[in-house]
Amino acid sequence: MTTHATTEPEAVEPTSALASAPTVTARAERRWSSYVEALALPAVTVVIAAFFSLWPETSDYFLTSANLTVLLGSQTVVAVIALGALVPLIAGQWDLSVGAVAALAAVLTAQALADGVALALALALGIGAGVLIGVVNAFITTRVGVNAVITTLGMATILDGVINQRTGGIAVFGDIPLAVVEFGTGTFLGLPRTVYAVAVVALLVYYLLDHTPYGRYLYALGVNPSAAALVGIRVRLVLSVSFVLAGALAATGGLLQLARAGGADPNVGAGFALPALAAAFLSAASIRPGRYNVGGTLVAILFLAVLNNGLNLAGTPPYTSSYVNGAALILGVALAAWLGRRNSSA
């Protein structure tokens, strides 16, 4: 049978695009609902904060500057580590080694300082260790082909061994330069100085994700790796860089911890991994719903911090925070998944 055209290419109306122009009301409605989605979690955080400020059980302490300083300062380390975990997470890769990297960086730098190494060199050593571990993680996942969860879980375990071997399980204190401790514990304009460090890191990561092609490539990879390769994205390179960035940022978090505590405790690092990853996951629940993002990460950390701090002040038993954090993580990610599904299929 021969050509039997049911449609003719000539039939295309060049003006048909006009028919698809959205109506003004539809656009306005969509915008309104998207603001609600984006700002729901920050709003809830504010409501909770207001509640603890007014609730007689906590109102005496919650809104004091001492408490707020502790509240914000205590979250700066986990915030920087979470921003590190966020980068590979966007590309669909979980980096479970961020906590161990932070601990290792803190220990290495603390020991170097104790050995009399110059401050700049000691800091560079800590960050360099994070970068190196990122490179190893990248090599194993992108070249050897081991799943990132496995790679970084194994790496975290190995690093735990390294840390304990180097410290004998004992915290490294002493000989930390005063400038470092002052940075870690001092305030500037009423806020802990480490909060400004978080702001700088957050701005850098935000710039990377939203204002460079690299950020686009990360998101594209996270959504559809096969299609990403077919638009010319160098998948292995982009993933490798994300692991290196995660290592560098996690190490930075470790150095912040060193400054705050005035020493390095070998048992602290591992504890950062899960809260940091949880915050990175929860980031998709706000600011840019359905997408892992910087603003959402900070909101998630503040939300959990305010909630835990208030409950703590109210004298709830310590295990309450486990219930709260676990439930918040599951509910938040469920919400983000729902928003993502709703926004990507009509």
Partner: peptide
């Protein structure tokens, strides 16, 4: 499977093979 980025915007989908151009 190989071309659409379902949860990215139409605009992002349009520019993914041209990202360098607007940087």
């Amino acid at each position: 499977a190989d071309a659409a980025f379902a949860s990215l915007s139409v605009g992002e989908n349009l520019s993914l093979a041209t990202s360098g151009e607007y940087f």
